[in-house]
Write a protein that binds this DNA or RNA. Sequence first.
RNA 1: GCGCCUGUAGCUCAGUCGGAUAGAGCAACGGCCUUCUAAGCCGUGGGCCAGGGGUUCGAAUCCCUUCAGGCGCGCCA
Length: 591
Amino acid sequence: MKSEQAIKSKLEEILGLKPGAAELETPPDKAMGDYAFPCFKLAKQFRKAPNLIAAELAEKLSESGLSAQAAGGYVNFRLDRTAFAKDVLEAYEQAGASYGASSEGQGRAVCVDYSSINIAKPFHIGHFRTTVIGHSLCRIYAKLGYKPVGINHLGDYGTQFGKLIVAYKRYGDRDAIEQNPMIELMKIYVRFHEEAEKDKSLEDEAREWFRKIEDGDEEAQSLFEWFKDMTLREVKRVYDDLDIEFDYYTGESFYNDKMAPVIGELREKGLLELNDGASVVDLAEYNMPPCLILKADGASLYATRDLAAAIYRKETFDFAKSLYVVAYQQDLHFKQVFKVLELIGREWAKDMEHVSFGMVSLEDAALSTRKGNVVLLVDVMKKAVEKAMAIIEEKSPGLADKETAARRVGVGALVFDTLSSNRIKDISFSWDRALNFDGETGPYCQYTHARACSVLAKAEWFPNRNAAFDKRADCHPPLHESPNNTVGADGNLPVKTDIGDNLSDDEAFELLRLIEEFPGAIKEAARKNEPFIITRFALDIAKAFNKFYYEHRIMDDDESIRTARLRLTAATRGVLAEALRLIGLYAPEKM
RNA sequence: GCGCCUGUAGCUCAGUCGGAUAGAGCAACGGCCUUCUAAGCCGUGGGCCAGGGGUUCGAAUCCCUUCAGGCGCGCCA
């Protein structure tokens, strides 16, 4: 029996079930078989004990040449591993760069609103989650044939900037701020809040300055632009290290002149009602508090801006999906916004999704810029890279371009750590965990990749070995830049060798099974908007490879064994590199 | 008060559509480098799946309920 699908079809045929009805499971112990079919549900239908059904089924299946065995109420199957190995490797080698890719997106846009930093606020570890989740989703959707549109919805609007100007004019030192913008701006911002406790007039002053920004006052405007420039300059360094590029930096202020139509439409459709002077959309019918659209003084609010932004994005990109990678504190806000869109007849409201995630806390205290209780991302990155460098100096002193390797491994550890549990879970930031390079970590996966590369290099099997490759020898590029189905760029290596039963051992089989599962894992990650599925996959395949590597000598003296194992190594390496790329990690060739 | 989310090993977390004996990593302890990278591999110990009821042949998983924690609930974003 070659594949899971073939087993299912046969079962359905014998039992007279409709296609797709038979579900297979994986037995708890490999010795039992590769797939299992539980017969308990059939007991009622056939009025027979499950173990009897299993026994009869196993007999019938065996008659038709399958390796089926009854065990209690289960029928266990063993695959024809030789044929399976051939199928999986050929599928991979044929697809090459596009293995796991699909065209289901048909080039349609998926808007991903993520990272969305605040101007003049430091990039702290709390922002890291939205940044890496959003980035990974962009790559996953691109893999499935969508066109991701990465939007950094800047927090560039609000009285906070009035406060900052007041703080700057009172306590700011231009040179100090130029030297170390985010830290210094944070300091004066914190000081503003301390002083404002004592002197309420500061708040009024701040509101006045904010009004001046909006009115286009020259001094206010230029100060604001200065804050914005410094923030973007600093944050782009972080994005460079993470290999992130945004398509748009259209922030909140971008929608200032785009809210009138939607407000008008709400009013026209009779959805807007006055309540204590404010204009709201009542959502009691949907078990939600009212959605505030306009303040009593007529000013717009957060929701107003998001409604305008949603409509703008639909009109501009005609998205298939529009995602908001924002912490779960805003669950209600997005529910309200989506509902209001539905109420004004935007049927595409169903295509919007709040990709919410848990809070990041610091030693049991919430992160708060205002209180100055932050861990800056640049500091964490710096420490991680230093640690990676120290390990490289110790273990691979001869490595070329150690700086790049250290940066990729150090940053990779942080990204991987952030993507290594379900989005919804809260995270308590821990230096120990973030800087751990052992066990289920990014460096572990990267190390495994480098190990595989090392074997392939030794066999002179490295894909695409050429001058360009040598220049970037520190770090392997994504799979799509380096299709490794071109095994033997030297042109003298056999690709279509007969695998025979050289890959029928448990360790090779586990790897083949994972390679086969990769395309499904990508789809599931997209369906759930959960990059963690890919993180888990990367760990699984890395573990399986290390086990394989330990149990079997890849560079065996026997040529047919060696070739088969090298093909498996090449495929594993390619899939692992691609999995890492999908969650935003580089896969170094050496480390 | 109301709503949403979370609760699995000392710690951090997996656990698919309800399936066989609940799995990893960290930390602790003990093994494995003259063979392809030891950032690795193997082993040992560690569990009332928060508690209680129910549905089911079968529940960590579904339903009800209690408890604990987090978040949100009109003029911030």
